[in-house]
Design a protein around this nucleic acid. Sequence first.
RNA 1: GGCCCUAUCGUCUAACGGUUAGGACGUCGCCUUCUCAAGGCGGUAAUCAGGGUUCGAUUCCCUGUAGGGUCACCA
Length: 486
Amino acid sequence: MANNEKVVTRFAPSPTGFMHVGSARTALYAWLLAKKNNGTFILRIEDTDKEREVAGSIEHIKKSLKWLSLNWDEGPDIGGPSAPYIQSERLEIYKKYANILIEKGYAYADPYTAEEIENFKKKSEEEKKPFLYREYRPENPPPWDGSKPLRFKVPELKRTEWKDLVWGELSAGIEALDDFVLIKSDGFPTYNFAHIVDDIEMGVTHIVRGQEFIASTPKFLSVYEALEITPPNFVTVPPIMGADGKRKLGKRDGAKDILDYENEGYLPETMVNFLAFLGFNPGGEKEIYTKEELAKVFDLNKIQKSGAQWNDDKLDWMNREHIKLLPEEERNEKIFDRLQKNPEISKSEKIKDRDYVSKIYPIIFDRISKWSDIDTMISAGELSYFFEKPTLEKEKIVWKTQTQENAKENLEKVLGIFESEITNYESCKEKIIQHATEVGKGEVLWPLRYALSGKEKSPDPLTLISVLGIAESKERVAKAIQILTP
RNA sequence: GGCCCUAUCGUCUAACGGUUAGGACGUCGCCUUCUCAAGGCGGUAAUCAGGGUUCGAUUCCCUGUAGGGUCACCA
């Protein structure tokens, strides 16, 4: 490839369902490579298998890409110089290329029935030999009328050697070469043929793809050879493995829809950062990158060859780091939004008081790594005391080293402080701390905190008072005293 | 099974053939502290094995082992 050639990459999903994390990362790498080189990123829909097609998946894929803000320069709805970008609308183009191959003598109609081929395979299996269609290549194939599959005729049986921009020099023996189907009997091309034609027609310079395509690369290369066209660069990325490290993370092994992560409250910035680092590392110790920063440091030489295991812990950590980078206002808005949508919290009148709720944001922020953690906190009762009075259990009001009488005395003291300083939080705080320091912190702060929250685990009592207000705090303390009074 | 590929802490990874093998997540400990969280500090932990090449291998070569991918009218 000429050095000054413009870089063109593509993401070419088939509309067979949602977009999982593996394909999202492939898309991301293709996007990064294009952006890094000021190139073009194409979205192409490979819908040549009408049986596996799932309604709505094209929209779902587009939505996923948009969420990650991997915007395409050419593609289905926006068009471009090589439109259309949906393979089912490009059948004439594949036919044109098929005819070129027929004319050159590199394609022929497959005369066999499915049953006959099945028997060939069975025979190979019995002989413990790999099945190769080309060993049964017909002497005088019938003319191709479209009713039979059109097969490629391998021009030359030879060892294939090629270069991959990630894996380096690769090679495969002649076993990798066979007369595969170019056009199916339903008139649609196979992936093997269609993607080659499209990449040529669309001027794709770098094919970013999963490692599962290495094995069929010799087949692709022999088509380029038959067409007398220089193949593009291959950029093969390693697989993402499941958390158990056993297998490639596929849909059937629990690979999730990338949009599930949106629902769980991960930021798209996190997913981009995390996905990029699953199999790529720019070196150095910086780990938190924006999409733009990634595009700058992206480097094919630094893509890993072996599979990387999915790691939810690290994802959560990274999401927290990205949440920290959010402007405070935006972060608060997200927290409020999540609170408001929670069925339990939305019932409370207090959620309508934005000033009141805003005091809770920092408490929540310290305790979450993703927005859905807010729901988890709520169902664990870790926020309920901000919205309704707690239920108190008598024994739990008393700190482990003190007597019931002592706990009651301390709460009465605090109640007295509240009554004398009903409008001044700072002064209340000072006096409570002073008292607690004198008689023992735990003996004052534990009963007080429990009286306010009804929980053994909660933010500290002074923080609680600052949110609840002195009047409300006073009521809750009075209630606790009443419970402690025989 | 054939073909192809890969191999550094538990995980993600760094290290032009010369480093006390570095960082991050997790985990553990400490500090802070009434509890929880956050934060700060610190510890634990790896070059798959065996042969070469070399003054010197994580790094280059071979073998073994382990793991992955692929062998469709699916992509």
